[in-house]
Simulated assay, not measured.
Amino acid sequence: MTLDDALAALKSHVEEGRAEGMAAYHKQTREVLGIPNPALNDLTKSWRQTLTVEERVALADQLWQSDIFEARIAAAKLLTQARLRPDAAAWALIQSWVPDFDSWAIADHVCMAGQKRLVADPSRVDAVEGWTQSDHMWTRRAALVVTLPWTKQNNPKSDDLAIRDRVLGWAASYVEDHEWFIQKAVAWWLRDLSKHDPDRTRAFLDAHGEKMKAFARKEAGKHLT
């Protein structure tokens, strides 16, 4: 499938009058076509079923480079799959996109693809740790969003607990960063963790909660009794 074919398929799902509202909501300056998310899901699912992994990585790269809002989301969705073999090229491509993040919707879709690659090979968390030192706010935020699977295990193994504690260490280094999206990401990680590991969440809030923004501290403890 060529990029032109893919863009034509995307544009066939444009809903008239939708683009302006989406651009305003997502604060986009890049081109927004006006395609609803269910249509993107259906289209990328069909591509995943018909393209090889190599073809999907190549198409995802081209879609990303088009710099169209929905094309970048479609690029991420093309690579969002637990069983993706081989996946080294997909992981490398996902990492290459992180410095381009400039809005939450695109960033979160890419991080969902990244989550699958981290769960497939947890040693990749080593690379993610480097993101926490970036001058780019969206890259720092992505380090927490991409590691969200480690908030969700009910019966984590020792290696999972080590990653959980490692990411909590990153979050602790973020609490004095009062950028709204960073505070929100810390709260998101803790809120999800609290459903499965309330003790670690309480310990974090006891140690660092006073340094967090009030809204973030409240959201982080939302599910704690």
Results as ranks from 00 to 15, higher is better:
A187V: 02
A107E: 11
W189R: 05
D67Q: 15
T132W: 06
S96W: 09
M212W: 08
Q115D: 13
R200G: 04
D199Q: 15
S103W: 09
A39Y: 12
E20W: 05
K152A: 12
R217G: 13
L51Y: 06
A187H: 00
E15W: 07
D5N: 15
K27N: 09
V186Y: 02
R141G: 09
V14S: 04
R56W: 04
H136E: 03
R164E: 13
A92P: 05
H26M: 10
H196Q: 10
Q49M: 13
D135P: 09
D102C: 12
M112L: 11
A105Y: 12
L193V: 02
Q133R: 15
I35C: 01
M112I: 11
V14F: 11
V98L: 15
K222A: 11
L33F: 06
W47P: 07
I94M: 14
D61H: 12
A142H: 01
V14I: 14
E176D: 15
P86C: 10
E54T: 10
L93S: 11
D61S: 13
H13L: 02
K213L: 11
A9F: 06
I68S: 09
R18P: 00
L118H: 00
L40D: 01
T50I: 01
T139C: 15
P36T: 07
R124E: 05
Q81S: 08
S123A: 11
I182R: 08
P86S: 08
A39K: 06
M1C: 05
C111M: 13
L190H: 11
R191T: 06
F69Y: 10
A60W: 02
